[in-house]
Design a protein around this nucleic acid. Sequence first.
DNA 1: CTGAAAGCGCTAACAT
DNA 2: ATGTTAGCGCTTTCAG
Lengths: 332, 332
Amino acid sequence: MGINIFDIAKEAEVSIATVSKVVNNTGRISDKTRKKVLEIIEKHNYTPNSLATALTGKFSYTLGLIIPNLANPFFGEIAKSVEDRARELGFSVMICSTDYDADREASYFTLLQKKRVDGVIILSGFEDQQTITRNLVKPNMPVALIARDIPTISINSVSIDDFVGGYEAAKHLIGLGHRRMGLIVENIRCAKERVRGFNQALEEHDLQLDESLVLLGEATVPNGKKLALQLLSGDEPPTAIFATNDLLAIGTIQAANEHGLKVPQDVSVIGFDNTMLATITDPPLTTIAQPMEQMGRQIVDLLVQELKGDVTHKQRIVLLPELVVRKSTGLR
Amino acid sequence: MGINIFDIAKEAEVSIATVSKVVNNTGRISDKTRKKVLEIIEKHNYTPNSLATALTGKFSYTLGLIIPNLANPFFGEIAKSVEDRARELGFSVMICSTDYDADREASYFTLLQKKRVDGVIILSGFEDQQTITRNLVKPNMPVALIARDIPTISINSVSIDDFVGGYEAAKHLIGLGHRRMGLIVENIRCAKERVRGFNQALEEHDLQLDESLVLLGEATVPNGKKLALQLLSGDEPPTAIFATNDLLAIGTIQAANEHGLKVPQDVSVIGFDNTMLATITDPPLTTIAQPMEQMGRQIVDLLVQELKGDVTHKQRIVLLPELVVRKSTGLR
DNA sequence: CTGAAAGCGCTAACAT
DNA sequence: ATGTTAGCGCTTTCAG
């Protein structure tokens, strides 16, 4: 194949060690030889084989990112930010879409080990403590969690305070005069935290959630629509609906429209995430914002610090979500 | 670090060659030894170091994907489909976001070479023939283009017929009685093809494009809005606007709303791509659909065929776009 | 059917 | 300041 370190060494009339040293800027090399070697390198457009480098050295400078589905803008934005930051720090990222398939998620663990990535960032579809613990912590591979958290294990993570997010959502709705709320909830742990926070605010106002207005389901627009329709066509429909992510909220708006209800006049809708989707619906979606950009950055920083050994203790960074008021919520 | 082929060989009381053979199912091994080796492998959860394998063997089983911005759903959907198919074929994908930065795009070429990926799929922000030719074709690295095409070089590619897409858009609008059209065009070659197709349909109907109604700009929602506002507040505003992608079209709908115009009663809007965004706007967007899923699949197939040497001749696959009529276009 | 040994391209002690 | 050499973990002839 291509040209290698020996070819350069020979042509420059030095040893491969010397070439290696000028390439990596290590050891002491006279300006003269350095220049000469650099010239030959330039001339042949030589670039070290990082597979060999990784095999020898400490790092492969590659990170794995395990994520449910890139086609979902929430994950897309996070992936983008992870890749951006990784690149700044000199790491490439290998991307693994699980499509919410637990087996696939597990098999990626193995694959990433084989590929000798230096660390793995997980945005799991589940929060199956078992899978993660068994597969990654055991082989002693640096792992970091993003947007999900497993409180029981010691692991670097960046997430938001879901409880507060739910709390804020409820407070906003209550402030607008709503008393009877419907919930559309994705079936994952963090969504349930949001519901807990929501409930807390309710209780503080002596309000109580009607359990029959809490619907669980997979996070897609059509599914949000289906569930919202169910909510809206009941005997005593809610005057406001909290969906635990933007996709579900958008489905809810669609359902309202289809049901002949105006948002927000007839029913208020509030989402969660603040993806770009929230800005393009009509009406634009009031939602609880997650700082996706920042989360991606920080998780990479944490992971890289860990694997470089800069920092020995693990961190759990919890960011605070923020209410973004647009036009989908209004006075009761 | 971890356990390696020697450890397995020792414990199984065979040579490393034997272990290698059972792992790769090559050579002839007695069932007895095979079983024994497999047992030890299982016991220690041994998994070969793919860096070493790649260093020796022919393939690294890794592909590079160069793409502008994962946060854009169009790219996200393509990335997902590429990753899915790659995985089915046993390849991982290294993802590289260029953010429409030519330097960054170029530097990724080099990086991917160093990492010894087996091939690269490019969805470039530009269609700078130079960059691609210089950096990839020269070092003899298999490259495939998706959603973009460079007619002048011999390279595997999957794209759609942009000309036909534009033609269809115009035909649809003309059929609805529109005569005065505005265009919002992303400043890349394929978008201009779409405009050419659009023009062709116009000419066939003895219509002529008013050049002052053709605006160029970067493909973002806010920018689409800005440009559309410009179009809409002119002396003789168009009755229909063709935006060369969904993002721009969404901005256009927003501009219309803000300008007090109803879509489609006062102005029709048609987009391009058919991302999930098109379904959630109000009104839902009429658009020209690209089969993103299929494009991703096919480009991976093409690239893998090429690098495995299964197929020697290059292919240029051109898919046909399809008009998807929703609610953003109506009778003049 | 199995094993010895020569690489793959590079880094990092250790000499010189 | 530069070179020698022993790995890194694996595949693959080539002998036996």
